[in-house]
Amino acid sequence: MSFWVQTGRPALQDVDVVADNLADAITMLYPLDTDQLILSWNLVPIALSYCEDVQVMVDDIVVLLEQLRDPATESARVYWGSSTFRAEWRLRREGPNLVVESRWESTSGSYEFLLNDRSPLTVDTVAFTREWLKVLRRLVEDVAAKSVALDNADMLLRARALLTAAESPGAEAPGAPGTPSEAGGATVRFQLSAANAGNAAAANLWRAEPAVARLFTGEARLVADALGVPSGIGEPEGDRCTVDLPAFSTFCATAVEGYANQPGIQRALTVGFVATALALLDRAGHPLPPAPSAEQQAAWSALRDQHAAVMPR
């Protein structure tokens, strides 16, 4: 194949502070001395450092893939600005393919002269997108594995949205009309019980895809069993799922209070669920439960807001 990416298995470091954004998280998450990302362009391999190169490139990767998912995008331009991966790419559609005209200025190993001789690159649009999604998947999964909190999670959420769109059953090829976000379909509405609805600004807390709703309520049962308190989250019935606010508030407070004392793997398995639950609690008009420390309080607040941004109402 004329274009491919190998993400490797880079080592991860603990990140004990709130990162400014996704690029900052990447800088702190990956040590310099670990597996590199390998990008092959017309049979020329290029090594990229996660903490030095990928952190500079990540915003451009997200924006480029968003553009390619839009069927109205006929051409695009990206300028990679890392000191050891500096190049300008101009992309245009030709049927199912992309033609990428490139001008290389600097690469690790000083291969720019060879790369300039091998421009342009012609590649299937689906294959091109799939290779870049491998990079985003590596980053998103590693950020989640280390529970890294971000002050500005915009790019992380957009990367997750791209991955979700690509992995959804029946997802269209990039650039095709009718992406999953545009296709209607049934949803499950999480609502406060009738007795609680008057206590919140809105009774509707979340409109989730059925598979997501089943996953969330299933996790609620398991976490409630582990904590020894009821979750307050009912079972989906048709297109509705009822939340009992007093029980749910106690459940969230118990989860936040006991989080720090859980084994590391248990924290990694439950952090996403708890952040989603806190987003629902916030929408029900309840503040974030107190955490054992100010740092944990800030981290939960950031994670709650990250999840809320991708939870339609």
Rank of each mutant, 00 (worst) to 15 (best):
Q55K: 11
Y79E: 14
Q306F: 11
A224Y: 11
L39V: 06
A309I: 07
D70T: 08
P263I: 00
F216C: 05
C241T: 03
D16T: 12
V229Y: 11
R86Q: 13
D59M: 00
C252H: 07
A208V: 06
L288E: 01
R90G: 08
L98M: 09
L121V: 03
A166V: 00
W132I: 00
P169N: 03
V143Q: 00
T276W: 12
Q191M: 13
A161C: 14
W300N: 03
L227M: 07
P96W: 02
L150W: 06
L133C: 01
T250Q: 14
P289N: 04
T84H: 14
N204M: 12
T7G: 02
A159L: 02
E172V: 15
D53P: 03
T107D: 02
R77M: 06
A47S: 14
G184H: 08
A211R: 09
A76W: 05
D59G: 02
R92K: 12
T125L: 10
W104H: 12
S82N: 01
T270N: 12
P230I: 03
F190T: 04
E94Y: 14
R118F: 04
E101A: 04
A275C: 00
A186T: 11
D59H: 01
A23S: 05
S147C: 12
L12M: 05
E112F: 09
A171L: 02
A201V: 13
T270H: 12
R77G: 11
A294S: 10
A72G: 15
C252W: 08
T250N: 13
A275I: 00
G175P: 01
G109E: 05
C252Q: 07
T107Y: 08
L278C: 03
R207M: 15
T125D: 09
R9C: 12
A279M: 01
T164E: 04
A279T: 00
E52C: 07
P96M: 02
A201P: 14
S40I: 13
D142E: 01
P236E: 00
E131F: 02
D20A: 14
S293T: 04
A203S: 10
A76M: 03
D305A: 09
E295H: 13
A176R: 10
D53I: 00
S108K: 15
T250L: 15
P210S: 02
R207P: 15
A19D: 06
P236K: 04
A176E: 09
L98R: 05
S301R: 14
V62L: 06
I61D: 01
E182W: 05
L162G: 00
T122M: 07
Q36E: 15
W206Q: 09
T242W: 13
K134Q: 04
F273C: 08
N116T: 06
V5I: 08
A202S: 10
A194Q: 10
E209A: 13
G178C: 03
G178V: 05
A19R: 03
G272W: 07
T122E: 11
